[in-house]
Design a protein around this nucleic acid. Sequence first.
RNA 1: GUAGGCGUAGCUCAGUUGGUUAGAGCGCUGGAUUGUGGUUCCAGAGGUCGCCGGUUCGACCCCGGUCGCUUACCCCA
Length: 455
Amino acid sequence: MAVNARIPKGTRDFTPEVMLRRNYIFNTIKEVFHQYGYLPIETPAMENLSTLMGKYGEEGDRLLFKILNSGDYLAKADENALNEKDSNKLISSISEKGLRYDLTVPFARFVVQNRNELSFPFKRYQIQPVWRADRPQKGRYREFYQCDVDVIGSDSLLNEVELIQIVNDVYNRLRLNACFRINNRKILAGLAEIAGASDKMTDMTVAIDKLDKIGLDKVCQELESKDIATNSINKIKEVLALEGSNLEKLNFLKDQFSGSEIGLKGVEELRSVLDYLAPLPIKMDLLFDVTLARGLNYYTGAIFEVSAKDAKMGSITGGGRYDNLTGVFGLKDMSGVGLSFGADRIYDVMLQLGLFEKITNLDQTQLFFVNFGEKEANYCLQLLTRLRNADINAELYPDSAKMKKQMTYANQKNIPYVALIGESEMESGLISLKNMTTGEQQKLSLEEVINVIKR
RNA sequence: GUAGGCGUAGCUCAGUUGGUUAGAGCGCUGGAUUGUGGUUCCAGAGGUCGCCGGUUCGACCCCGGUCGCUUACCCCA
């Protein structure tokens, strides 16, 4: 009985065709990162569960993939938990490792562990898969890639500015129209403060984050259900109704926050960032959005979220500033800011918008040699070496199969040129070169072939 | 964890108020074309209708269960 050839739910295989496109995205992102002085790191797929647990909230713990201990793990299992069938209690005695849930927490662990090797501010990027055990749906996978870029060890707002420029550059290069929304956790804290609901800040942000999805009435309902006072809700409503330009909104909030130090700080931070950016060429929309909250609790300053303007998809990039991410690992006063590009969603959006069609991919085979037989194949090997030395991707069909079969192969691989070398070509020293797009064919010397393909 | 939708050829899907031989397009294989792919024409292969059980003279169709996929909610890239 054959084993079912399947992969786990929410995971994917990537064919060569898909990988060429994915690499185009990854390479574009990397090039921009390099331009701004960020360098790559990698961390292991698995971390100790103690590193991961408790960093993403209760929901996050549930969504962590845990790795069963090696060996006879049941021998050391907590017997009480086992008898009571209490999974949560059992975990710590049978599993001590888990797959990473994002790249930010492993990065914080990395910074603390390697602090003596690093020079600060430390600018790194990291492009690796992460895993989440939630239910897959549109644009959501159980294994997906994040492209994180962070700078840690500097609280300068120039870092925020730089990251916004990076996002702008990446989406310009990918020809994707982006809408960059920005807010500041301190503004949300200020809002909670002037509404007299400071203790309910998390509930408040979670609720108002849903404004564009469920509408104002439902948001107020949710606020009520969280025991937030009616006059607080009215105050919050007033701010949510805010319209106008980014600066108009900031000015309005400045007045509102006269009694909130933290709120004013948030307004000033955001204003500085926008002031820095004003004279710079930013093509994407840049929108101050008071309703932007973002779930992760470790953000303390700016928060960002980017969506594609022409496609229906969740956010394709997100991030923010965190003042104390390394604190839990014993390193205080390390402010950092960063964001993460969701490569899989970017891919889905670009596919949806047909943006891959214009990309000519240089990674593919450029010249294909038909195999006419033993003698001819031997002759081709010499030519292939010279072509590859001239930086031309070239291959020879391994069997002297029927011409039709070989041509079909070249066609399906989308190879633009085919070389035919039989007896007459070997005698003349020329190559019959067929252009697979136009169907034209001519006899050329090797040098001429190189020139035609390089053109 | 909650709630919907869908499982028929390699892929995308049609189908029958339950009736004997289950269809299309694309793809695949062969031929027209033994030194020419893509286009065109001709021919062909390929399905226990997800699985198990029930109702029925008879089930791809109806019912129950089960597995798988998918969408939305929570949450999130």
